[in-house]
Write a protein that binds this DNA or RNA. Structure first.
Lengths: 333, 333
DNA sequence: CAATTGTTGTTAATCGATTTACATTTACAT
DNA sequence: ATGTAAATGTAAATCGATTAACAACAATTG
């Protein structure tokens, strides 16, 4: 690895001139510029980004901390992040904690040690709270996506899970379904609680009693939802509608229902949540009616908010709340 | 952001002492150590990673360049990368080119500007060649995964696609199937060519004629494989076995076969490739017999090879070839 | 008691870039 | 010929850490 000084020596000029050439700045005679460029060329010289970032006090880099990377669910979110970053001239670095809180902390610290201009962290897990507060205390620009940090002056991009769940439930109720079952997520996650609350509130507002069998405690994955729904059906309970807190869970429930001879949506209506439906799903399952999360837009907004905050560090923190959209397909009219 | 000098001033000591405390080195009196630690604590001081990396001439960081991040296919590969990196004390940064060659180049350059100790690049695309050569010319340690760069002294982790395809085809032939159709991938990708060659070679070795209808040109995704298989069946061709170059393609083909009333494996045997089967697949499709790629192990090997190369820059480049394994499930005995 | 060893501390060089301040040269108008 | 402005160049400070070299002093040893 050669340095700017070596280039300067070989070209018989000062470092300053090389720097000017590198950054396309004036103040270099044509012949010197040419000579310097040719030395750079033949040396395969690349300026050191660390040194540059150190003196410029900026990295043009955003660090993104995710719980998982290889999940179709994050596809749109990451696309939004990347498109916006590209447009605004930032590089994006990803890291994956694989849901280990200590690894997440490690990468947050890593990014916060001057290696990025700001951090975007995804996390709906309640155990993230401490970690998020640690970022904030370092006073590095950051945006929390799907995170919820009360009493804390921090930028947040959120989804209105409560209203989404409320509207999904309301939709079912207004269609005449009253025997509705809700499949919840893991109760360690904020989103699960918020969606459950939305369901409960809607039921109460329409004075529909919530019984012991109205709520299936599961997680947002296929397997457990399948098992719980199966158990319910085998116990002889016959709901006429199901609001699942996540599409994956909806598919699990649907599988149980199909196995038990239910026809969808004739015997039971289904609404999911997320709009996380791989293209291939439609092959075998009925196309799912669901509450869409505008993940792409949320990704874009996160970057915009962060860059705002980088360029204007003294400004107050912002919170942007996104709404879900009911996408009517075939599992519920 | 405070600096080491500020800490030194506040604690009335020299920078050296602060540095020693930060790095847990001896040569600091107990009372000074305590004082410095308390100043660090109350200042929320974090040492600057760029400055440290600049003077230490190492970053303890590996940069990974992928075509896509949010794909189940890469799950195991990335797990392998991360586990190995964790064990060896390296941080891993990911970036996604989303299959844009210029963005890929941008991030490779970014990583190569001293920001990482080495680069791992995934790419089976033929258009990556130029890009890979540019990394090599920068003489920064790197490993290519699934890439194929001839006449170039560079570390590579590869899969024996030829032999895998050969063995899959051979397996079908030895079971008595002779009317075998192969679903290919995009011909711009090395893997597609290698797997096709393996198929062809096996057919030739067993003296089975390859007709016009023996090869379905598609990509490794569900849709096109579905369409091509459908077209074949509608033309009245009745193969007795199918070797798909990828599991996704296999599922597309299976879908067409099921729709046309074929029973699997009674009427037709199927072997896929990759073992990229999301858990949820088994719900509706028959469990797929396939050639497994040891992606987790390949991920680990990439990191090991890279770290080797970082610690011993002068050594010759290595190539490690991994073999596939036939996983017998229900679509082919 | 002198010599040696060990501990604790400081100063200054270093990593590789950018940038300010200033020096030199050239061109042009007066 | 003189003064001024523009263009081109250099030297040195700076970013924020680590570390080699060395100084000062206390403790140990013969």
């Amino acid at each position: 690895m050669s340095t700017i000084s070596e280039i300067a020596n070989k070209a018989n000029v000062s470092r300053t001139l090389v720097s000017r050439v590198l950054n396309n700045k004036p103040g270099v005679s044509p012949e010197n510029r040419k000579k310097i460029l040719s030395v750079i060329e033949e040396t395969n010289y690349v300026p050191n980004g660390l040194a540059r970032a150190l003196v410029m006090q900026k990295t043009q880099t955003i660090g993104v901390v995710m719980d998982e990377l290889c999940t179709s669910f994050f596809f749109d979110l990451i696309s939004g992040l990347q498109d916006a970053a590209e447009e605004m001239g930032y590089n994006i670095l990803f890291c994956s904690s694989r849901s280990h809180i200590d690894i997440k902390q490690k990468y947050v610290d890593y990014f916060a040690q001057g290696r990025t201009d700001g951090i975007i962290a995804y996390g709906s897990n309640l155990t993230d709270q401490q970690l998020f507060r640690s970022i904030v205390s370092k006073s590095i620009p950051c945006v929390l996506v799907e995170g919820n940090l009360s009493n804390c002056n921090v930028n947040m991009v959120q989804l209105d899970n409560f209203k989404g769940a409320y509207n999904a439930t309301k939709h079912l109720i207004e269609l005449g379904y009253h025997n509705i079952v809700h499949v919840t997520g893991d109760m360690n996650y904020n989103v699960s609680l918020e969606r459950l609350n939305g369901f409960v509130q809607a039921m109460q507002d329409f004075r529909i009693p919530i019984g012991q069998n109205s709520i299936l405690y599961a997680d947002y994955y296929e397997k457990l939802a399948y098992q719980q729904m199966r158990k319910l059906l085998e116990a002889g309970i016959k709901p006429d509608a199901c609001f699942a807190g996540a599409d994956k869970a909806a598919f699990g429930a649907i599988r149980a229902l199909l196995e038990m001879g239910y026809s969808i949506p004739k015997d039971i209506a289904i609404i999911g949540f997320d709009d996380d439906v791989p293209e291939s799903r439609d092959i075998v399952f009925p196309p799912l009616t669901t509450m869409r999360q505008p993940l792409y837009e949320m990704g874009r907004a996160s970057v915009q908010m962060l860059v705002d905050s980088i360029k204007n560090p003294s400004q107050n923190s912002q919170i942007k709340m996104f709404q879900t959209e009911l996408i009517i397909r075939k599992t519920c009219p």
